[in-house]
């Protein structure tokens, strides 16, 4: 792994974003809109059903954390698509750049996007709803860390699919993450799910994080076990999708697909 090559790719994205208002807007626009709409709905429900203590805390906290996962995933997939749209993949992979260095750069881009989104959403929640997400305390750090990892898992998997099936699969860059939302139990506990769906949620790291979030906000004890599950599953899944990415990369090179992505 050569750092200068990872930095080169990051520089390319910094150049891109500093000149592209639509791309900057895209980072902030949806999270902001999500927060405003769901925030007001939450306030309304909280007033109407005052017997639900901490409803606002659950809902807004979950919304902010879910958006971090979403942006983490997009940091990977959109960075790859930027190269596809620019017909730049050949320039990159005919250089000494290794696939692992490419992935490392997209992961750093995803951290950048998550950081931007987090700051905006945390501030907006504070200003609009007097909601301080930092009340989750230090647990927030492992929660966010695991959600970023889960975003990488989905992002690397999606990127492999786009590389394999071409630009017609690019819609997955926006939609794939929502396939995981129902079994991530973002806004409801896992036991709400039908019994047959619960095992799927159990092997989804994000579901354990949101269970852990509810435990913390309910003062139901430390979410140590949920975090252990999340770390373990994320570790396994990340190794698996990176191996899948390398395998897909080799397949695309063998079948001449790498030079055709974006055509």
């Amino acid at each position: 792994m050569k750092l200068h090559r990872v930095i080169a790719l990051l520089t390319r994205h910094v150049y891109l974003y500093r000149r592209s208002l639509p791309r900057i807007m895209e980072i902030f626009y949806w999270p902001f809109l999500d927060l405003v709409i769901w925030g007001f709905i939450t306030l309304y429900l909280a007033r109407a059903q005052s017997h639900l203590p901490g409803f606002v805390a659950f809902f807004l906290g979950a919304l902010i954390l879910w958006d971090m996962l979403f942006r983490s995933h997009q940091g990977i997939t959109i960075s790859f698509l930027e190269e596809v749209w620019a017909r730049n993949l050949m320039n990159l992979f005919a250089s000494p750049l290794k696939p692992g260095e490419f992935l490392a750069a997209t992961m750093l881009m995803s951290i950048f996007k998550v950081t931007c989104v987090s700051v905006v959403m945390i501030l907006c929640a504070l200003v609009f709803y007097s909601y301080n997400v930092l009340m989750i305390g230090l647990w927030l750090i492992p929660f966010v860390f695991n959600l970023v990892l889960m975003g990488w898992v989905i992002g690397v998997f999606t990127t492999s699919l786009i590389m394999r099936f071409g630009q017609e699969a690019e819609v997955l860059a926006w939609s794939m993450v929502f396939l995981f939302q129902p079994i991530s139990c973002v806004f409801y506990p896992m036991d709400i799910l039908p019994r047959w769906l619960q095992p799927l949620a159990m092997i989804n790291p994000a579901a354990h994080i949101f269970e852990g979030l509810r435990a913390v906000l309910n003062a139901a004890g430390a979410p140590g076990q949920e975090l252990l599950w999340a770390f373990g599953l994320n570790g396994l899944l990340l190794v698996a999708v990176i191996m899948w990415f390398y395998r897909t990369f080799a397949y695309c090179k063998a079948h001449g697909l790498l030079v055709r992505v974006g055509e």
Partner: peptide, 10 residues
Amino acid sequence: STYISMPQSL
């Protein structure tokens, strides 16, 4: 190559 490009926004 005539058939490649470079990032358009840079």
